[in-house]
Amino acid sequence: MNTASSRSSEIRSALQVNPDLKGSAEIKQEIERRIEFIKNTLRSSRTRALVLGISGGVDSTTGGKLCQMAVESLRQEGYDASFYAMRLPYGVQMDEHDAQAALDFIKPDQVRTVDIKGAVDALMQDFASEQADAAKRDFVKGNVKARTRMVAQYTLANFVNGLVVGTDHAAEAVMGFFTKFGDGACDLAPLTGLVKDQVRSIAAELNAPADLVKKVPTADLEELEPGRPDEDAHGVAYEQIDAFLLGEPVDEDAARKIVKQYDATEHKRQLPAAP
């Protein structure tokens, strides 16, 4: 019988998921592989910096630490490179303490802060006459926040001859849980193919603070529901998403939701349509 679960293998392959990445030895090897990927990407592009926004979540904490380790390794090899961590709050971030804890852990070469509130509010004011209910306006504004953050990161990258790093991974990619040309825009995505628990395992292996490793994921873009957990938006728990991507047993209703979202967001994972 053709079920949603039967598409797990196809989707796992498309998103480059490795179900065998489990034990400590494999995690350590994967850390080294991804650091080498970052180093090779920077060196081959002839750029000298990496830029990444740090939110205080496990994804950017993990990506940021890998970036810092990569540039430190490059410098030891005689290639001048730096990592710029960016704080990109909209006004005051409610979990700013987590972002600061992430920075303390990463110990980036440089920290730059840009408050995106003025730019976001100005753009939304230009569209004040658009007919939309409060929920729609809040959704649009959330996407504007994500895209404004990426504009800021590319602005800094231009100044420092750098590349912008993304934090998308398989558990987000399968759900299309990113803003097109917002947090989905980047020059390299070193967490590609990882499920959420694998990201957490890498963070733990790197000795990230336990409360950041276990933190409930939230994009925190919506003002009507501040701090809304990602899983509420998905309608599926990350444990179920991970299990689906790893080819493990998963409730068929959850599998249907995942496949439906994967198909509906296919356009977000593709290059622009062309004739």
Rank of each mutant, 00 (worst) to 15 (best):
D187W: 02
P217F: 00
D263W: 07
D220L: 08
A274K: 15
S129A: 11
V199N: 00
L191T: 02
L50G: 01
A219C: 15
G162H: 05
A99F: 12
G23W: 11
A4Y: 14
N40I: 06
V216W: 09
D232T: 05
R147P: 00
S6Q: 13
M150P: 04
R200H: 11
G56Q: 03
A255M: 04
Q100T: 08
E225G: 06
I258V: 12
V92C: 05
S44Q: 12
Q110G: 02
S82H: 02
V160T: 08
V213P: 04
T179N: 07
V250H: 02
P108E: 07
V236W: 00
D98R: 09
A134G: 11
K136T: 15
V114Y: 01
D133I: 14
F105R: 13
E225Q: 12
A255D: 05
Q198G: 06
V144K: 02
V174C: 13
D115R: 12
T167M: 13
S8Y: 01
F105T: 01
L88T: 00
F244Q: 02
L224V: 13
A4M: 12
I31S: 03
R75Q: 14
R256H: 10
L15N: 07
K215D: 07
S45V: 13
E231R: 03
V165F: 04
V114M: 05
S82T: 07
I27L: 11
V140A: 07
P19D: 04
V174G: 03
Q261L: 03
E26Y: 12
S13W: 09
E130N: 10
